[in-house]
């Protein structure tokens, strides 16, 4: 009450684009101008947008590979250790050596798939910063259309080329129909 009201710091500028096509060209221009901290927000993934934004291929696959490898080794141990060492169980006269390993393949396969899938979903959450239920862009009412039919560009304040007036002007030139300044949440 006695303390003067201060606006929380600016998070960035969000601009609404009229269509996927305009957004795509805007992304190419922003990429060429060397912006670093920015993103486009769309209701569905736009084909070719990664290249238009200058993003590389997602590295998720490498993590999944190691997740799958872990699954294979876990399964090999899980099936092999009890069957051969801990509690050798002779069924139908089958030998207890490693040559019976093909009988473990189904379990190895299934656990490889299981751990790969867990790693894939885990990496998705980690790389895309989810779950994060609260984000400054949600402070703009209009942004709700991002999951309906809205196409948005967000340029963050921490980008080196960011300045409130210039960036807004640039976005307007790129075809934005509506532009808003979004603030961080007050602490």
């Amino acid at each position: 009450m006695s303390t003067p009201f201060t606006q929380p710091p600016v998070h960035g500028i969000v601009a609404e684009m009229p269509s996927a096509q305009v957004l795509f060209h805007a992304a190419e221009k922003l990429r060429d101008r060397g912006f670093k901290h920015w993103d486009v927000h769309t209701p569905f993934p736009i084909h070719g947008m990664d290249a238009a934004m200058g993003l590389k291929k997602s590295p998720v696959g490498y993590f999944v590979f190691f997740g799958g490898l872990t699954g294979s080794l876990v399964a090999l141990t899980l099936a092999g250790y009890p069957s051969i060492i801990e509690y050798p169980l002779i069924v139908a006269g089958k030998p207890l050596n490693l040559f019976t390993i093909p009988a473990f393949f189904p379990i190895i396969f299934e656990l490889t798939i299981l751990l790969s899938a867990f790693t894939a979903v885990g990496s998705l959450l980690a790389f895309s910063g989810l779950p994060r239920w609260n984000h400054p862009v949600f402070n703009w009412d209009k942004f709700a259309r991002v999951s309906d039919d809205g196409f948005f560009v967000l340029i963050e304040a921490k980008d080196a080329q960011f300045n409130e007036k210039g960036t807004a002007k640039l976005l307007a030139e790129l075809g934005a129909t509506d532009i808003a300044l979004v603030h961080e949440d007050p602490i």
Binding site: H41, T42, P45, S58, V60, S116, S128, L130, W133, V137
Partner: peptide, 19 residues
């Protein structure tokens, strides 16, 4: 999960979906 439809999310999302 606070999904915002950012392309920096979609690119991982699409890769994970493919995987």
């Amino acid at each position: 999960l606070g999904w915002r439809g950012g392309n920096r999310q979609w690119r991982h999302y699409e890769m994970v979906y493919l995987i």
